[in-house]
Design a protein around this nucleic acid. Structure first.
Lengths: 96, 96
DNA sequence: TCAGAGTGTACGGCAATGCCGTATAGGCGG
DNA sequence: CCGCCTATACGGCATTGCCGTACACTCTGA
């Protein structure tokens, strides 16, 4: 197996970070969100949840089934729905 | 020019709706959002806006330049940012 | 007992977006 | 004149958004 310069570089970087000689770069957080949990905390079925927040049912399904991962905007929105469900619902209903 | 059965069908449908014989189907609202306006209302540059709400600058750009249109989740999020900027910022900052 | 409604899992599939990068241009302070 | 900030424009690929269909399970009323 040939030596991969890129891997060597990365390994040295990891070592440097581990030893505190380097700051870890911004990492792309897996950003997991338990959509089902957020939804269930509000006692809503997938359908009613989707309807309540104006999102496509199929998209909710994809998220819950792990087939797709919500992008950043969706991610933030979900956290808002989790923390302030009524505020979100109010904004949505106003002017729609 | 050949007759297009689909168009004829649509035309008849439109007529039926116009005459009240049929309910208009759910229409996909163009759902335009003036991201730049929302951002400027908060006196933020594209960069600071993106940073403030944890969104990729490139995505903000795409939206403002009309190259891409925010999907439903993003759309709702933008309306939340517009109406309740501080609530959104607060939720975002908590736990990140 | 069985048809039907409601809920959820699973997945095919295409158009469209998300997000990264680079090039270009105008304004501004040093 | 150079560097910095801000914004427009766009190439490009992986991934998602969203629609549709098929199945399985549970509950309810005829």
């Amino acid at each position: 197996m040939a030596i991969e310069p890129e891997l060597v570089k990365s390994a040295n970087e990891a070592l440097a970070i581990a030893e505190g000689r380097l700051e870890p770069a911004a990492v792309f957080e897996p950003a997991t969100v338990d959509v089902a949990a957020i939804r269930k905390a509000q006692n809503l079925s997938q359908g009613r949840f989707a309807e309540r927040y104006g999102l496509p049912l199929s998209t909710i399904r994809d998220w819950e089934q792990g087939r797709r991962r919500p992008d950043r905007a969706a991610h933030l929105l979900l956290r808002l729905i989790e923390a302030e469900p009524d505020v979100v619902a109010r904004i949505l209903s106003s002017s729609e």
